[in-house]
Write a protein that binds this DNA or RNA. Structure first.
Length: 525
RNA sequence: GCUCCGGUAGUAUAGCCCGGUCAAGUAUUCCGGCCUUUCGAGCCGGAGACGCGGGUUCAAAUCCCGCCCGGAGCACCA
């Protein structure tokens, strides 16, 4: 051991290469983290997962866990991924037509295309059918107690007066519910459970209730139905009916599973495998639908894609790639503890994806004028669009010694701090200069030399620049919605809306608009 | 309050079920260095964690008990 360690590294490496070449190869394979296996996959012919949003808001990073986990597992086992809109509350959580589409779009953008799609508001007759069966079999009943009266009974582990009435009576009441003879809140269908269950919330839970859809019409089916299923009823039935084998959802649904299991046993069904992951938050962002809706409606945010929001629309606008989100979610995995992500984690994945792909440009933030005197000749700066990929092409600027021997540039006021009178500075990819004078809005300098080696030897700071005249105005909207003003180099005029580029020494941005001037959104450093 | 989860570095994660190979791995972050006409990326090195207290055991991040902290649910919402 000591003998081996005393050898130079290159020698050690040579020996290993000779004797165990496979050891080195293995070392280089950077393994991507994989999802842990799903439980009891063998029990089912095909794995079926579902993502079931309420279309009452746009999707955000908080939903990413459900979407990506469900989709990824479905792919992993060559199974099926279902999108199911749970829009059964026309009153309190009103679905909004535009969100059905925005959710579909977000899923496509994320690369999580559903194999099938269902909308619960189209399935009301199915829910009625099972409600009747359950009532007929004495496993459900129509309760006409006031909520308070019922609550008292159930807390005392006693049946309410309705519970033990014969099924025929309840079938009559059910018919009256459908016929509109009860008003909102006057009757509710309950699933029978164990009255002694330790958690009062699971005892005889409500399955269907009445909504006055004349007053609160459903955006898709209007006033067609007065009796609407509650979450546990619709969701519980659908999961079985659609053949869902693995339910992957947040742990807030843990008690819902307990409730639904009673219904499954009434129907003689077997409950699917269920994974309840923890809550996902990201520092500084509101991931609550109500906060988002409130903020957008109230004008606090510019829209669903306001850069301060962690909606997919906002992330997309900023140039955060779906691949980065996917890696992040897979990295976090399906465990039950809550996580508070830091943006750095997301950015790091995104940077890894973007860096080898996107072109580089100069953007000068809060520009000030730099005058360079004493140019010996005209210079041509020919700069690669991507440092490692010369085949991408170049951008070219001719630095003319127009007025005598001087040239004018924009440089960033932020770089003022690295400029000291008498010291050398390198204009990246161009030449070295010596600072003669520094004022708040103007810097004077003189030409020093051309070679990069000189700059290195002098330990000169490197700053980027845009030739005055070869510039175009550019605004960058930052993640806090503040706007940074500056100038971009002229070559940016060839960019298109939607392009993601790196503004060197500034960060990655996505081009939003280009009309003589540039509007970009900042992704990250 | 009741019911149920969970707590590994700044962040995220592996390991926990089936104690030893964990003087705890990985990614990111931060700090150095190298490389490179930029930042970045890349390469090399460094910093940084088992919530607390008991117990069982030759041996505990892993098993048991207590405590503390965090979260979720307790709707005729999803």
């Amino acid at each position: 051991m000591g003998e081996v360690n005393s050898l130079p590294l290159s020698e050690q490496k040579r020996i290993v290469e000779e004797k165990w070449p496979e050891a080195l190869v293995k070392e280089k394979v950077e393994e991507e983290k994989k999802l842990p296996p799903l439980p009891n996959v063998d029990k089912y012919k095909t794995v079926v997962t579902r993502f079931s949003p309420n279309p009452d808001c746009v999707l955000h990073l908080g939903s990413a866990r459900a979407i990506i986990l469900c989709h990824e597992y479905a792919r992993m086992y060559r199974g099926k991924f279902i999108l199911r809109f749970e829009d059964t509350d026309p009153k309190l959580k009103r679905p909004v037509p535009e969100f059905y589409d925005s959710i579909r779009e977000d899923l496509m953008w994320l690369g999580c295309k559903p194999d099938e799609e269902y909308i619960q508001s189209d399935r009301i007759p199915i829910y009625y059918e099972y409600a009747e069966k359950l009532i007929n079999d004495g496993n459900a009943y129509v309760c006409i107690c006031t909520p308070q009266a019922f609550r008292e009974k159930i807390l005392a582990q006693k049946p309410c007066p309705c519970r033990d009435l014969p099924p025929e009576t309840h079938m009559e009441r059910w018919q009256r519910m459908l016929d509109g003879e009860y008003n909102e809140g006057e009757a509710v269908v309950r699933i029978k459970t164990d009255l002694n269950h330790p958690n009062p919330a699971v005892r005889d839970w409500p399955a269907l209730r009445i909504i006055d859809t004349e007053e609160y019409p459903h955006p898709r089916v209007g006033s067609k139905y007065r009796v609407w299923p509650l979450y546990n009823f619709a969701c519980g039935l659908d999961d079985h009916l659609m053949g869902v084998t693995h339910i992957i959802r947040g742990k807030e649904h843990l008690t819902n599973m307990v409730r639904q299991k009673y219904m499954y046993s009434h129907l003689g069904w077997e409950y699917p495998e269920a994974i309840h992951y923890g809550r996902l938050k990201i520092v500084g962002a509101y991931l609550s639908k109500s906060k988002i809706v409130q903020g957008v409606k109230g004008g606090l945010y510019t829209g669903w894609d306001d850069p301060r929001l962690a909606t997919f629309a906002a992330l997309r606008k900023r140039g955060i790639t779906p691949a980065a989100i996917k890696r992040l979610i897979i990295d976090v995995g399906p465990k039950t503890s809550d996580v508070v992500l830091s943006w750095e984690n997301l950015y790091a994945y995104n940077r890894k994806i973007l860096d080898p792909e996107v072109n580089r440009y100069f953007f000068v933030q809060t520009p000030i004028q730099l005058t360079v005197h004493g140019l010996p000749r005209t210079f041509i700066a020919k700069i690669r669009l991507h440092p490692e990929r010369p085949e991408r092409g170049f951008k070219e600027y001719v630095i003319k010694t127009s007025e005598g021997d001087t040239a004018l540039f924009w440089i960033s006021r932020n770089d003022l701090k690295s400029l000291t009178v008498g010291k050398a500075v390198r204009l990246m990819e161009l030449f070295n200069i010596k600072i003669e004078s520094v004022e708040a809005y103007a810097v004077e300098a003189s030409f020093l030399s051309e070679s990069y080696e000189d700059a290195k030897r002098m330990d000169a700071p490197l700053i980027h620049w845009v030739p005055i005249g070869d510039d175009m105005p550019c605004q960058v909207v930052m993640p806090d919605a503040a706007t940074v003003e500056g100038v971009a180099e002229k070559a940016c005029k060839n960019l298109k809306s939607g392009d993601i580029v790196q503004f060197e020494r500034f960060g990655f941005v996505r081009i939003e608009r280009l009309d003589g001037k540039i509007l970009a959104y900042f992704a990250h450093k």
